[in-house]
Design a binder for these strands. Structure first.
Lengths: 126, 126
DNA sequence: GCAGCATACATAGCACTGCAATGTATTTCA
DNA sequence: TGAAATACATTGCAGTGCTATGTATGCTGC
């Protein structure tokens, strides 16, 4: 299943901030975490994630430091700031508001389908 | 509460299609339905909705016809197509996939916060 | 030693998108 | 008669972003 770009974009900030709220991390590891969490449904590209990280850093929601792994690899670790935690809470609130709205209309459709099951085919044909 | 534009955009197709799956409707009524469903949190502008409706029509997900209300007002009624119903199912599936992903990481954070409650303040200050 | 792969990060131009701002039209009501 | 409500339309400017591409380095098998 491919997830459309709007939805990826709309959820990316919340996901990145939440993953960093779990603990400091770096780009490559974040990519893998997103893939794991989504069961493979969300496959972000490098080209997408890094600009997101840079944007979040510019906004003051995360901060970074270069470090070296035991293997000798350099990594850029990101960490969520206090402002970032606030933003995450806001993102979460917004997501849940919209989710609740969608949930309502989806329930309403399910009710319509059940009560009008005999009428819908007729209406559709005329 | 204002919902950011990405999230509005990402949810607008699903919302419009779902509202029309409930029953035929027209622009102005859709605006009011969205406001009602969201408890006032989602206030779409005309300028946003009509291009969305036109786009969905171009894509074949909805179709339209002009009619006159009892009051004499002209209205453009929109109706979801079969293709539109398929698209709605897809949109729903995608939303729920991402919602589930977010739910997992939000739960994980809640667990982190609970188990590390004594450590977090110390780590943050150093 | 070397090539291929994995690990890690960077970036910009082209393509695209979209909505704020603005406009039109008509009915209702004080 | 004018303001408000009801109803729809549209585009240019502003903004956004991700595809495509690139750099760097460690690891491993041959």
């Amino acid at each position: 299943m491919s997830i459309n770009k709007d939805l990826v974009a709309a959820s990316s900030t919340a996901l990145v901030l939440a993953i960093l709220a779990e603990g400091d991390s770096y780009g490559y590891a974040i990519l893998k975490r997103v893939r794991d969490l989504s069961g493979g449904a969300l496959e972000w590209t490098d080209g997408m994630l890094y600009p997101v990280l840079h944007r979040l850093e510019r906004s003051g929601f995360i901060e970074s430091r270069w470090a070296k792994a035991e293997s000798g690899r350099r990594r850029k670790y990101y960490r969520i700031t206090y402002a970032g935690r606030d933003q995450l809470a806001d993102e979460r609130r917004q997501w849940q508001t919209v989710d609740k709205t969608l949930g309502k209309i989806w329930s309403a459709i399910a009710d319509c389908a059940n009560t009008s099951v005999n009428l819908v085919p007729l209406l559709q044909r005329s």
